[in-house]
Design a protein around this nucleic acid. Structure first.
Lengths: 294, 294
DNA sequence: TGTTACCCATAGACATGGTCTATATCTCCT
DNA sequence: AGGAGATATAGACCATGTCTATGGGTAACA
């Protein structure tokens, strides 16, 4: 059964042995010499052996004391390392940040924040796990990521949602359809053109489908793709009109390789949110990252 | 500042992490659950990070908690091993006993006690360092042995002397001098025979020299030897009359290969004493051995 | 949808025991 | 002989670790 010493006594013993002096140990520990003397005595009495020889110069380990020290020294060093490591984690000189989300959000939305974060805390390792929104939620619940970056809305009582950014989806076309540049199309008119949409299970796809449905139309894509890059590329090559997040094609809109097709109805904005587990403590790194984004 | 956590908290953390439950940790440590809860909270606050996720089944380490645990686990295991080792030292299931003395005392006097001690405490390693009395005293003061076994008297304020046994030195001869068997010799008569003595620096030699001197004689050996075995062997072969400790030749006296030469004056007994350092704590093993001898 | 039975968190009271000051004792050194 | 510096001891105090009592949350089950 437990010999039940207060482990604090080992700290005192360690310093007394290390410095060879109760007085020095006391200084190192910000205690008084009698306190140290008392602590050592407690240890000796609990073990029933003497740990130190006392002489006029200080103290010296006995055989038994050396045996004890051989164990305790390592133990104390480990604790010191642990405390240093924890301080490093807190200061974000160390640790890791694990984010889940879609590739397109990483590329167009998360990346600038990540750069900033990495510059500020180069010791923190970054892990990006890409997946669909349900997958990201699963990752979160399994504890494999600290936070997720996904499109809103998300309704899940276990999750804490921080809406952080608004994106505007729109239809864009390339020079093949230049005649539409200054027009304002009705939905009916738009549907006369080949439409390129993201794959069926994406949130953007569901959103636009619902918009058309609300106005009594049904939108059926000519082409279906699985990445934002393809959505852009196909539109540039004139294969159709792509439904895409405006912020993700800002470069193409600027340089004129794509233009936005105006509609006579407003398209709903979409929101990007940061997902974390509700009622679960955040790692320092995740906390700092969220603070950065907000 | 001081990250100065009470190391006792790490013990609590260790058990909480190990059992995955504050309640279980409390039972293991003979504490109540609120105490453990409080201890963990202290650690978390001191580090500024969360160490556990709390759920309805118990607790689970966070990333930061796992990092801390990776250090603390080893540390705690070492402390446990240290406590077990110290208990073993105390119980004499372990440790060592270092004795200094002369070969003859080891062989004829210490050995039976050592056998008994070893039988009772087989885990204790035995170290025998042989040397002359001054060497033994030096060993003691240098801390190379726990106790010395030497002839009395010893006067040294640093040493603690425990007289433990009385030996009687005497003159013995072999069959070559059978005519002396039933005689009682005067010192003068004895000196007509060749005498064999131990080497000049031995205590026995000094003692007998002084005895003869007190009676107005001077004893000069024919042969001088460096071991008790040779003293005995030479006497048996009739090379002279040996001055030897009676207890060391009890076998030869019994079997008749040697007989004691009676003198008309009493020879002073010599005393064997156990030497330890005064004002220095004894190891458990040394303490037990001295108790055995007394 | 109660009920039960586990968890952990919190609040507040209490007493243990760790720490302090003051002093004694010892040894070494000058 | 005296001073410097080490550890040991005694006794007082109060910080803090521990307890009891209680609250809230979740999972399992009827």
């Amino acid at each position: 059964m437990s010999m039940g010493n207060n482990y604090e006594l080992y700290k005192v013993f360690y310093w007394a042995a290390k410095t060879g002096s109760l007085t020095q140990a006391a200084k190192a520990l910000y205690l008084t010499q009698p306190s140290v003397s008392h602590a050592i005595k407690q240890l000796e009495e609990s073990f029933g052996v003497s740990l130190f020889y006392r002489n006029s110069k200080g103290v010296e380990l006995t055989q038994e004391g050396m045996v004890l020290y051989s164990y305790i020294e390592q133990s104390q060093i480990l604790i010191t390392l642990a405390e240093e490591k924890m301080a490093a984690l807190k200061n974000l000189d160390s640790g890791e940040l694990r984010i889940g989300g879609s590739d397109s959000l990483f590329k167009h939305y998360v990346l600038p924040y990540l750069e900033q974060f990495h510059e500020r805390h180069p010791g923190v390792k970054l892990h990006l796990n890409h997946g669909t929104t349900p997958e990201v939620i699963t990752f979160l619940k399994e504890g494999r990521i600290d936070l997720g970056v996904v499109r809103m809305p998300i309704v899940d009582p276990q999750l804490q949602v921080t809406e952080s950014f608004q994106l505007q989806d729109c239809f864009v076309a390339g020079s093949r359809y230049a005649e539409l540049k200054n027009e304002v199309l009705t939905l009916d008119a738009l549907l006369q053109y080949p439409i390129i949409l993201f794959s069926r299970n994406s949130r953007a796809r569901m959103t636009i489908t619902e918009v058309f449905h609300n106005y009594g139309y049904s939108i059926k894509p000519e082409i279906e793709v699985g990445s934002v890059d393809l959505l852009i590329e196909f539109a540039r090559r004139g294969l159709g009109i792509s439904y895409v997040t405006r912020e993700f094609v800002s470069k193409e809109l600027e340089e004129g390789s794509l233009f936005e097709v105006s509609l006579d109805i407003p398209l709903p904005p979409s929101h990007v949110g940061l997902l974390t587990m509700r009622n679960m403590p955040l790692s320092s790194a995740a906390h700092a990252f969220i603070g950065l984004v907000k």
